[in-house]
Design a binder for these strands. Structure first.
Lengths: 155, 155
DNA sequence: TTTACTGCAAATATTTTGCAATATC
DNA sequence: GATATTGCAAAATATTTGCAGTAAA
């Protein structure tokens, strides 16, 4: 699994197998869904496992290179990460522009289509589809606010 | 066109129609392809049109809200912008992970597919597809370097 | 005349870097 | 023992904010 893959990767690049790197990998693979550097670092600290932010950034970089982590640069400038589970089906991301929450949807038809696509003068390594919109939760809240406003005005 | 749309937008929100805002809009619409805040600001300066960065950020925000500009948050943490031409067909982005260059491809099949897609408990407002890889130019350079290395080693 | 907007500088947030101490190989 | 990695603090980068002066309405 992930740990083996990382070990092989580090070995092949003559990089060192430090406890910090494995602790970060473990923590990431215990997280379901998306996370950012800050909260990952916080989680490690609250486990009383102290690592510097610099090391977290360094390790995340290695994990991305190694194919175990994916970075998402989202609009509204949040950067989020997620683990890559080897045989997890390709999924797309719905991002709520109100609350920032990310929902995943599988779309095999889309994935198949994209994987088959070739471009001239360009060699694809990966792709990301982001669908921005409003989740039902926020939509409900918004409607409520609008209603309240119109009540106030009509008074 | 763009200027009218912006004027209507500003009017409807009771925002002011300042020369700075129009100068920024004009400059953006003279740019083909993608740009970032820094280079946009530089272009204005080199036209001897001085505006503060704060105003550029402010105006870009309004233009996005108004639907005249689109923000792209790309991996390798560059934020790029592009104008939206009203009747331009939906296009996707190929991003070279080596040089950062962005190439556009039209894909009507994909756009039609996406526009027809509905999700449960989520109201889509827009989507972005990013395809990361290596452009032929960089691929050639990379191969050359690898070749040179192996020559050196074999010496 | 009112108050939104601008420029500037300072503040904030995020990521990178330099360096001495340390730990892996 | 050689050197890659760590932690820390400082630097670099990108964006936001506060405020006084200015200008659009």
């Amino acid at each position: 699994m992930a740990k083996n893959k990382f070990t092989l990767f580090l070995g092949s690049k003559q990089l060192r197998k430090t406890p910090e790197r494995y602790a970060i990998l473990d923590k990431i693979f215990s997280i379901n869904g998306h996370f950012d550097i800050e909260s990952l670092h916080d989680m490690l600290e609250s486990d009383s496992y102290h690592v510097s932010k610099a090391t977290v950034y360094n390790t995340i970089g290695l994990l991305i290179e190694c194919g175990l982590v994916r970075r998402h640069s989202l609009d509204n400038k949040q950067t989020k990460y997620e683990k890559i589970i080897s045989n997890s089906p390709n999924h797309q991301h719905l991002i709520c522009t109100e609350c920032g929450k990310i929902k995943e949807v599988k779309d095999n038809e889309f994935s198949a289509y994209m994987n088959a696509r070739k471009f001239t003068a360009f060699t694809t390594s990966y792709f990301q589809l982001y669908i921005y919109g409003i989740c039902n939760n926020c939509l409900r809240k918004k409607k409520r606010v609008t209603k309240e406003k119109s009540i106030k005005i009509s008074k």
